[in-house]
Each structure stands twice: as structure tokens, then as C-alpha cells.
Amino acid sequence: MSPIGKIYCYPNNPRVFKILIAAHYNELEVEIAEFEIGKDNKKPEHLEKFHNEKLVLDAGYRKGHPNLTRWYTTLINQPSFKKVLGDITLADVAVEYTPPKKEKKEQPKKEKEAKPKAVDVVDVDEEEEKPAPKPKSKLDSLPPSSLNLEEWKRVYSNNDTRPTAINWFWENFDPEGYSIWRVDYKYNDELTKVFMSSNLIGGFFNRLERARKYAFGSLVVLGEDNANSIAGYFVIRGQEVPEEVYDAADFESYTFNKVDHTDPSVKSSFEDYIAWDGHLDGKKYADGKIFK
């Protein structure tokens, strides 16, 4: 069977696929010409045949292409085509496209810019009130102390507790500028798991942030699951428990008792609790946390 026509188009055109499928259903053959857009469509022989790729069925064109005209008129007179397209009248003369004339747009006249009026410059710093200074802690007004608390924290963190850190502490402790406090949890009978007791200590320390500049502490969990307690010692600036400590949310759950550092038993107990070893009131060490 000879081809019923030839298609000139770029490769893989989906519209061409539709044509080929329709031809296959009707057992017809359509030839696909080798064609390169931008090159073959500009050749003289192509332009002469396809009139610069414009298919216009005017009277002159129809006279030179009777087969195409017959095919076209057959289609447009089919009931399905007529239902969609209505009656179609073929043109006698092709309509030439005439581009519209460009209208010149008048440039809007620029209005004279008004000179900005002079504005009095106001010194914002003078207008705004200076922020109120943050209230200082009462502890900052205490007489200077020979004990450098920050230095003590560094010594404790970077050296063995026994004997280096403990020896440094007693050599530099200032009983007039600082006091030592025994701390015990009030509700030891309610404690269960060791890790939960340790979390209680961590929560208390988190709420003591305001006191970090003025205090050092060690609290430990003694015992085992379902039979443990919390105890330890704090070193605090001044001779009273300051607001920075007693204002913490968990403070009421602990007792703070000032101790005499010259008492040998107190001194020994203090050392055990910051070293996390020794007698520890005869109980087994389970866990501990340092506030520094």
C-alpha cells in the first residue's frame, strides 16, 4: 500500500503520533519525512510548496490542491464536524495580516520636586529615658573576701579532690566572707529510683542560676533504689542564706543548716561529700551533682 501522504515535522511530535495511530486503525500508511526544523523548512523548495508554512485554503490554493481540498471539505461536512464547527465557508482570498500601528506614548511631564522642608533634629538619646540599672545583689555590697570562689571552682574541676582541691580550699577559705551549710532533702521517705532522685538535684540546681556567682554546692544520692536519700553541703557568700538561694522554687524542699567549719567532724563530713567518698554518714554513694 502506498502512503496516503507525507508528514514534515520534528521528531517525537505527539500530534504526529495521533495521526499515525488513526492511520493504523484505518489500515492506512503515512510517510514521515526526514525533516529538521530551522533548516529544511527554510529551503526554497519547501517554502514554494508550503507557502512559508501557512496553509490557507483560499480559491487560488484550492485550485492547485484538489485532493487536499476534497479531503478537507469531506471532513467539515461530516455530521460530527458540523455539530462542533457549524457551517464553514471557504475564503476566496486569504486574509493578509497587517500588524497594528504602534501608538506613541506621551511621556508624562515630570513635576517639579518640592524641596524638603527643614526638620529640626531631635537627639533621641536625650528624649528617651535611660533604662533603669539592674538591681544589684546585696551580696555585692559585702566587704571583699580573700576567697576567690571562681578560682576555687576551677581548682576543684581541674584537680584531684583529695588531696589537691581540699587542701587548696582550707588554705583559702574565708569564714568571714563565706559560710558553710549542711543541706538535706526533707522528703527522703518519698524517694524511689536513684536516677529520679538525681534528677531532683539537677532540677534544683537549674533553679539556682541567680546564685551561681555566689555559691558552690555538692549534693549526693545515698543508698539504692527505693531506699535512698539526698544530702550534701553548700558554700555561700555571706553569713545568711541569700535571696538568690531561698527564692528558688525547690528551696522549701531542703533544710539549710549553717555549720562550724572548725568542728573536726563537720570538716571531715564536708570533705567526704565534696569528694563523693569516705564515710558519708555510713551510707553508700549512688550518684551526685556539683553546683558551680
Rank of each mutant, 00 (worst) to 15 (best):
I166R: 00
E224L: 01
D225A: 14
D184N: 09
L149I: 14
W170A: 01
E151A: 14
W170Q: 13
L147C: 05
R182V: 04
S229Q: 06
P135W: 02
A215W: 07
L149Q: 13
Y178E: 08
S198P: 00
L147F: 08
V122G: 04
D160P: 03
E171G: 03
A118H: 03
S157M: 12
N159W: 09
W152L: 14
E190S: 13
I180E: 01
F169N: 02
W170D: 14
E127C: 07
F169T: 06
N172R: 08
D160W: 02
A227W: 15
N159M: 00
D123F: 15
P133N: 13
K213R: 14
Y187M: 03
F204E: 08
K153V: 12
V183K: 02
Y187K: 14
E171L: 09
E128F: 15
V121I: 15
N158Y: 08
L222K: 15
N228A: 06
W168S: 05
W168D: 12
W181T: 12
P144S: 07
G177T: 12
L139Y: 00
Y156P: 05
F169W: 02
T161I: 15
D174E: 15
I230M: 02
M196Y: 01
E126K: 15
L142G: 05
V221P: 00
F205C: 13
R207T: 10
I230A: 04
A215Y: 06
L200F: 04
D189G: 01
E128P: 01
N226T: 11
F173K: 04
S145H: 07
A118Q: 03
K153Q: 13
A211V: 02
D123C: 03
G223L: 10
E171N: 07
D125T: 11
A227P: 03
R207E: 13
E150T: 12
P131V: 05
E127N: 02
N167D: 14
P175F: 09
V183Y: 11
A118F: 01
G223K: 11
T192C: 10
T161E: 12
N188D: 12
V155D: 04
S145F: 04
V194D: 05
P163E: 06
L149G: 15
P175Y: 09
L222H: 10
P163A: 11
G177R: 11
A132V: 15
R210K: 12
R212G: 11
F173M: 10
W152I: 02
E190A: 12
E209F: 06
E190K: 05
L149A: 11
E129L: 08
P131H: 11
F169Y: 09
S218I: 01
G177Y: 11
I201V: 15
N188P: 03
Y187V: 06
W168E: 11
K213C: 00
E209N: 14
L142T: 07
F216Q: 01
Y156S: 09
G203W: 08
T164A: 11
V155N: 03
R212P: 05
